[in-house]
Amino acid sequence: MHTDFTHTHADDEAAVRAVGVTKTYGRGDSRTVALKNTTFTTREGELHLVVGPSGCGKTTLLSVVAGTLEWDSGQIEVFGVKLNGLKTADITTFRRQNIGFIFQQFNLIPTLTTVENVSVPLLLGGTKRTEAEERSAAMLQEVGLGDKLTKRPGDLSGGQMQRVAIARALVHKPRLIICDEPTSALDSTTGHHIMELLAGAARAPGRCVIIVTHDNRTYGYADRITEMEDGQVKQVYANGALRDFIATHR
């Protein structure tokens, strides 16, 4: 009954393409232009960092690209699907099939066990409960939490909670993984551990990870870094330029 968005493909391996996107919040005196005619591209197989000062529009960019926020103008295409033309219900289906989310605040449901939390994307996708829980347990095993299956988020450390969140983001094998400040609530060692897990996920073919971050310890994991300023992309770094950028931001 729903459109199937799982086998769509962009011609040029661009996973995400946002062209001339503008987003304003509020109106009148409180009107804020968060994205000003912004253009942003991510390729498949890439771990792409988005950096920039607070308030420059990173989270807003992530929100519109993930189809969780309406924007004013501009084109957004994810894996060849034009989000502009889709109805709300279809965008919801698209998210369910293609996007895994990792949030700064983890956003795990405190009354559910780790297995139950991780099983949510599978259940939403129509997987039966027992199978969903088996696959979730296996995924938790992969992120090193095989012994915490029946624990609740409240019993875990921050790093463990973020690993549960990663398991939840990856369990249904989405092609796009969206992370907003996944390491900022964690200490340095834990942060590196999390980044390694995410980098591993991104390198799979046909996949892509976009991470918004303030945390320069994560820069070394990037294949590409987009630097934003004041609602616009200031510069995109890859290859040699990327290495220089990392060196100067150590």
Binding site: A66, R95, R96
Partner: peptide
């Protein structure tokens, strides 16, 4: 009280 969790479910594709 659960609005964030409901929002997270919505983001993950709950209609």
């Amino acid at each position: 009280e659960n609005i964030r969790h409901l929002g997270a479910l919505k983001a993950m594709g709950a209609s």
